Every structure is written in structure tokens, then in C-alpha cells.
Amino acid sequence: MVSTCLNSACKIERSRYNIFVILTFVIWSRGGAMRISCMQESLAKGLAIVGRAVATRSTLPILSNIMLASDNGRLKLSATNLEIGINCWIGAKVDQEGAITLPSRILADLVNSLPPERIDLQLVVRTNTLNLKCGRLEANIKGNDAQEFPLILVPDDEKPFLLTASVLHQMIDQVAFAAATDESRPVLTGVLADIGAESLTLAAADGYRLSVRKETVAGVERETSVVIPAKALQELRRVNIADDATVSMLVSKNRNQVFFHLDDVD
């Protein structure tokens, strides 16, 4: 699910973060050195998807990293710039649980240069170094502790509504372009999403032009409205999924986050 943080959501709650640190320390310290195997093509595709959310300019170096973690027998990739957060899962063989964050550009460039074969990943916990082996090639990448990485939380107590990817793509293409690029009026850089009982309306304006698109949807349990950054919707549009795929959309109760769920991508 692609989550977009709005307004105060960009500030991580300290109490929640502290709980996360304690829990993950217990789990990962017991797991020891992570050992995971996956295919080069799958890892490269996953890195390309989450790489869209990596921060390019940030005072927090950890936001330039991608987190790799074992998750229910799969490899989970996560990235966030505190405005957009993306999780992606790829098939993998998990021999030992664990997690690490690695510099996005270094990791992506390395994986893209590898042959289309199996990649074996092994974490050296003491030095936070990930060892990669693929065919005759071997490399080591220095990373950071996964406990420092911000949480990308997805609520599981609310029911999303559904729409097809083709419809969502059309709505974004027809509306997001009209949003302002001038940061002096932040609200105009976003797209208004108005969720009615049986409809979803997207609207954007920059002071000179206005674009509105309305679509019928089903399964809406709570009517609400929220302003989504246009850049976030445009990044969502760039995720490569089939037009007939189903996308679920959910707005948090406090209206500061929007979640989109696609196949193997949050």
C-alpha cells in the first residue's frame, strides 16, 4: 500500500517510535544474522518501485536508505521520505530472519549490474554489513540499523473501498497535472479527494485552471475528504501494474494519511 503522509503525519510520534524500537530489538536480536535468497530480477524490480519514495534531500540520512527485512517468508523492501512511504514484497527463501537498511543508490546500482541469477544475502550484525553473492560476484555494503528506520504503519481496523487500476490511472492523469507547483500556497500543490457514499471525486487547481473527475465506487463505509500531495499521486501512477488489477484505497480516521494497496505493494 502506498501511503501519503499529510500535514502533521510527517511527524513521527515519539511514543510509538520507542515501542517499535523495543519490539524490533527483541525480534531481530534473537534472529541473529539475516540470511535470504532471491532472484536478481525480482529484487531489481522491487528496488525500482520503493526507490520512488527515497528522500533525495533530507537532514535525516536514514531516509536515503531502503530497508530490507524478512516478513512471513518473503523479503520486504521499504522506503519513505516522510511524505510518501512504499512497501514492496518479493518472493524469497528466508533461512534466517533479520533486517537492515542500505543506501538506496548504491544498492540499486549494484543489483542492476548483477546477472539474472540467484542472489544470496547475509547480514553481519556486528558491523551492519550486508554480504551479497550472485554467481561469481560478491560485494559487501555497509548499512544502518533497521531500528532507526521510520515506521510505515498500515491500519488494519478499517475497511478500504476498491477501484480498478485503469480508472485510478485515468483520474490521476486527468487531475494531478492541474495542481500548483509553487510551494508558496501548499494546499494548491495537492489534489482534493472527496469520498462520498458511492463516489470518489478528485479535484485540483493552481489558481488559473481547475480539473475535476468523479467516479462511482462501491464499498465506502465512511464519507470523508482529504488533500493528497499531487507528487504522491503521480508516483503512485508510475507503479507498473496491470490495468485490470484492483486497487484498494483507505483514508485514516484522523485524515492525515491515505493508503493504497496493490498486488504486493503498499
Rank of each mutant, 00 (worst) to 15 (best):
K159E: 15
N240L: 06
R126W: 00
K214N: 14
D145K: 04
A205D: 07
N131P: 00
F149L: 04
A178V: 07
V220C: 12
R209D: 04
T181Y: 03
A176Q: 04
A232E: 02
F149A: 05
E198W: 03
G143I: 01
A178I: 03
E138R: 14
L210I: 09
N128A: 05
R238E: 11
S225D: 13
A218N: 15
D173T: 14
F149N: 03
D173R: 13
A204G: 03
R209N: 08
H169A: 13
T189L: 02
N131D: 00
L233F: 09
E198F: 10
P150R: 05
T129Q: 12
H169S: 14
A193K: 10
M171T: 12
D206R: 03
Q170I: 03
A180V: 02
I241H: 10
A218I: 14
P186L: 06
T127H: 07
G219F: 14
V175C: 05
D156E: 11
D244C: 02
V226F: 07
A242D: 15
R209E: 05
E235R: 09
K142F: 01
D194E: 15
K142H: 10
A139L: 04
T129A: 07
A232W: 04
K142S: 12
E183M: 06
A139K: 08
R126A: 12
L151I: 08
A204Q: 10
D194R: 15
V167A: 14
E215D: 00
A178Q: 09
A245N: 15
N128K: 05
I241N: 12
L153A: 09
